[in-house]
Design a protein around this nucleic acid. Structure first.
Lengths: 269, 269
DNA sequence: CGCGGAATTGACGCACTTCAACACGTGTGG
DNA sequence: CCACACGTGTTGAAGTGCGTCAATTCCGCG
């Protein structure tokens, strides 16, 4: 099996095994892919390129090794809504496979390295590995929890609250995959991207960020962002990270204990 | 097995087997539940009662036989965001089981009749029935598609567009389960509920509905709502019903053909 | 008949948008 | 090496869609 089939190097595989996306490390980790001998291919994509285009059909799933992406849709009036960001350690494209035509487009924010995994692999997982399919299922549930929280952002929070809620979400998600240093992290999003995520204009995002800086809650230096007062920010935006899936472990235990007496993986025995 | 365990009568089971929720008819249909002998219980719930409370933990899933419910969350400032509506033929509560503490509350809009299915049943489905677990997975994907569309509502559509988009969604979903008559349907939502769904105030929902009536696009008579110009409404709100899962069949074929040569259900052979 | 929740309407205010300019950094070609 | 374009950030001034407050009407229901 060539090196190209190693879609994740050892180090990332570990990062991926954190609660934020426990499935991925196992699902697409070396062992699984390489031993299985599936046709995973690594690709590197420039920043600001579309990877998935709304309306087209796809037959493969992508795992993000490195870089940021976002899922979005353009309305007929030309405005764009970003529904969520896809960070290292996540995968995407399942929806694009399930629907005849993808509902959303996916594009890169930064340069990114991805791995393509043909749909058949996922299907095989469902058939052969009970644990993994449960975990896959869990990830879908989690994703919809994130969408729900974004809906609350847009529906019921002020601009000030929205921006802080988004920043905290990104911070926590990045922390989970080891991409933060203390309270600071690399934030490649432009104010336009933030606006399109939160249903605001660039101008207003700018003003809001300025207030946040003035209030000594955050600090921005180029693309480096640091959270100065996590507590205060959490309170004002009622941010609770539970929707990001800290309860993964609980669920893992729960699902694998009460019914399946044999703690092991294989589904077809 | 007593009649009480029949959580769906024959007629609804058929309705449930429509594309809108193909899984439910099969998953909770007579045959499955009764033959399986699981502890499903039927309950009837008054209108305006909470069924699931955010922050608590649950161990069962609910199937909706009749009536409308909604999933929501209250913020610390007291405002409420409704994330989606749960209509006859759907099930809910899986999320509440997976997370240590439910992220959302679920309450009835109208009087409703539900069936409780212990979590173990779902778990068994995952273990024993490949087809059904795929379908269950699909339903989670669909649900997140609906959330995504609601996010776009709140983020990037005007009040006028939001209201029409919601009405069309409800209309299509109800049509799928045979709950419309021509272009009219029973609409039990108060303007407050609509507002909390779309991120608007009651007052503004009222004004918006008035414009829609004035523009001869809809007609309201008490709780009866009729769509006068589906085309025009679709265009102005760019409504595309594909996110509601019309592609279910496509996916069914796709998932059950390429890998699993045997077309039958059983997973553990 | 009378109560209470929902719908309706008006007047006014504000958070956010729109439009428009300008600043800054970075890459690109002459 | 400079000139220029271009994307992004920043700031001001003015407009508006929707919120807030508050009063009134409607309607189902005991």
């Amino acid at each position: 099996m060539s090196k190209a089939n190693r879609i994740l190097d050892r180090k990332s595989a570990n990062a991926l095994a954190t609660p934020a996306s426990p499935f991925l490390g196992q699902l697409f980790g070396d062992r699984f892919i390489i031993e299985g001998g599936y046709g995973a291919r690594s690709v590197r994509i420039q920043k600001n390129k579309d990877v998935v285009i709304a309306g087209s059909h796809y037959e493969s799933v992508y795992a993000v090794h490195d870089g940021w992406l976002f899922r979005y849709k353009i309305l007929h009036n030309g405005s764009r809504q970003i529904v969520d960001f896809i960070l290292p350690g996540q995968f995407f494209g399942l929806q694009a496979c399930f629907f005849k035509r993808s509902l959303y487009s996916v594009a890169t924010v930064t340069e990114a390295s991805l791995s393509t995994v043909p749909l058949g692999v996922i299907d095989k997982v469902f058939e052969q590995n009970l644990e993994l399919s449960k975990i896959l299922f869990w990830s879908a549930v989690c994703e919809s929890a994130i969408l729900g929280e974004h809906l609350i952002d847009a529906g019921r929070r002020s601009a000030y609250e929205r921006v802080t809620h988004l920043l905290l979400e990104l911070f926590v998600r990045l922390t989970r995959v080891g991409k933060t240093e203390g309270m600071t992290f690399y934030m490649p999003l432009t104010q336009e991207l933030i606006g399109d995520t939160l249903g605001l204009t660039t101008v207003h995002v700018n003003r809001t960020l300025r207030s946040l800086r003035a209030d000594k809650l955050i600090e921005i230096d180029g693309k480096s962002m640091t959270i100065l007062d996590f507590e205060a920010l959490s309170l004002l935006s009622d941010f609770e990270n539970s929707y990001l899936g800290e309860a993964v472990r609980a669920m893992r235990n729960q699902m694998s204990s009460p019914t399946s007496k044999d703690g092991s993986n294989p589904r077809s025995r």
